[in-house]
Design a binder for these strands. Structure first.
Lengths: 340, 340
DNA sequence: CTGAAAGCGCTTACAG
DNA sequence: CTGAAAGCGCTTACAG
């Protein structure tokens, strides 16, 4: 089970020309006579010749491939960002190799090494939930390979990145809750180790402070991004002596789990408890009630990240760039009307 | 911006030994003296030598990499199946290159060609919504490359595959609806071109026939797997002169859109209208009401597909295998109690 | 225990 | 317009 593949040499032998001629003809080089070309093309087609990209990469020292590392490809944000990446990269003839860490630091390192060893032309990466130490990323940079970080890489110094203003987004979300009359606002932050969650927490605290509401650490809760979706965390909070009257959730999935927990308690949304999510995932507007959330321009972030990659690829001494994209509050039914 | 990478030659020159010795020492060959090895390892470490996988692949004619092609990586089914794939493949030291077609036939072909030209050791693939013609898959087989199809590849002849019994799963879903007293059962099938949807439709018709209910083609509707999630299709059906009293949806996402449409009409689930989905996606149990659905063993399907790949890789004249995995009806709140 | 040579499949200066 | 030669970074029979 391994029919030998046809190579340039095979074609050369058959046509009694040199491999160089075959190679040039296949590239449609002006140096080769029309008739020779035609004969070569015909045979190549007939024999179903396909160039071996591995050999081409070795010689060209380029792969026209970029590695993409995300925690989980099924997260809506990542999937959408990848589409933005593809939108730019495919047009330029680049392929992407998508790798997922499943939030494992170890796998993130392995993927970086694999991609570098595979001689990709660059790496575009988020950061796993476990990652504390960034040397695997700096290795890439030191090897002179283009790299851009996005989303969770927002606070890694000396690396180009595309991000949102997480503090501000958190502030806006919580300010909306306050504006609609909520007083005891819980924050379901997701994994404690994620700087992105801590940045939004800063925004949460800022909004609280601006409204003169004191911060209660019991109202911040951590959970994994698992399939439980914050359901049990929200439930626990609801059973506190002084339960929250609103939840700010780190993403819409967790918002969904929170809504289920609220319903299970027999409470109404938003009359009894308000909920705000993050991301504006496609189902947010189909939930019952429809979920208020913060929209993040994931597709556009992907496009910008791809552009940064090209900038680095094509520039001799590229600057380190930081691009901050805007977020937007989308008010729907899971929060109340604004109180004057 | 391209510090030259250190190669075996560089190490050889520095240590005044031959490249062969370096290569062997790095592989910890018994042929090399301990001291020589030690010196080589040290320098390799000090200089941060990393083997060039591209060169290794060219010479070994193996890549320890398998290509995975899915329509959309964000579909829960695909994401979970990929985890099953990883579960087996990573243990054996294989990496996966994940490619998405976004339901485009053209991209599916491009991915197949890219993966083959990149000399992956095998391809594990679903099928895009547009694909009618399978020659790109047969090319892979003819090239002697291991290949296994899954899910939507269930009806492609002469290829190894892992699948579920879509007809039976459809029959079970619809029979449950009938058992709970539903009479006018709609089927939201998704893209018309997908054989998987047609197979489930056969099951739908079978269940109808078994119960002596006549088939009404007006109750079958097609839609894209877009972000609308079947919302508008369901809405249209609800506005028919004789609206359905139940919906069988090709997946839970579409089930979600359907539920939203039903709510918008002011109807109750399941009292007025029952809904059953497919896949048991993680949020199904968090919806309001909780969604009844058909569970598909996506993770296990991935494991089986990976095992089939290894079987082909390691066997001289591998048989063509078909593995059918069981599905399971998960009864929750979006369908009524069983009527006697 | 170590090295020289050939080669994986391709490309591209250098000649002619 | 075409070819011979060298080389991308590595591995591995073949010698010694």
């Amino acid at each position: 089970m391994k029919p030998k593949r046809v190579t340039i040499k095979d074609l050369a032998k058959e046509l009694k020309v040199s491999p160089s001629t075959i190679s040039r003809a296949l590239q449609d080089s002006y140096q080769i006579g029309e008739e020779t070309k035609k004969a070569i093309w015909e045979l190549a087609k007939k024999w179903n010749y396909k160039p071996n990209l591995v050999a081409k990469r070795l010689i060209k020292q380029k792969s026209f491939t970029v590695g993409v590392i995300v925690p989980e490809v099924s997260y809506y944000f990542n999937a959408t960002l990848i589409k933005g990446l593809e939108d730019i990269l495919l047009k330029e003839g680049f392929n992407l190799i998508i790798c997922q860490t499943h939030e494992s630091y170890e796998r993130e390192i392995l993927h970086c090494e694999f991609l570098m060893a595979s001689q990709v032309d660059g790496i575009i990466s988020s950061i796993s939930g476990e990652t504390q130490q960034m040397s695997h990323f700096y290795n890439i940079l030191e090897a002179g390979m283009p790299m851009v970080l996005f989303d969770r890489g927002f606070n890694v110094p000396n690396v180009s990145k595309v991000m949102i203003d997480n503090v501000e987004a958190g502030r806006v979300a919580v300010a909306h809750l306050i504006d609609t009359g909520c007083k005891r606002i819980a924050y379901l932050q997701g994994p404690e180790s994620l700087p992105i969650g801590n940045a939004r927490k800063k925004g949460y605290q800022k909004a609280l402070a601006e409204a003169g509401v004191s911060f209660d650490r019991k109202l911040v809760s951590h959970c994994k991004f698992g399939s439980d979706m914050g359901f049990s965390n929200a439930k626990k909070m609801l059973e506190m002596p002084e339960p929250p009257d609103a939840f700010f959730c780190i993403n819409d999935r967790i918002g969904m789990g929170t809504m289920a927990a609220i319903r299970e308690k027999g409470l109404r949304i938003p009359e009894d408890i308000s909920v705000i999510g993050f991301n504006d995932e496609p189902y947010a507007k189909l939930l019952n009630p429809k979920l208020t959330t913060i929209e993040q321009p994931a597709f556009q972030m992907g496009q910008e990240a791809a552009k940064m990659f090209f900038y680095q690829l094509k520039t001799d001494e590229p600057e380190i760039l930081t691009k901050i994209l805007p977020t937007k509050l989308i008010i729907r039914e899971s929060t109340k009307g604004i109180v004057n």
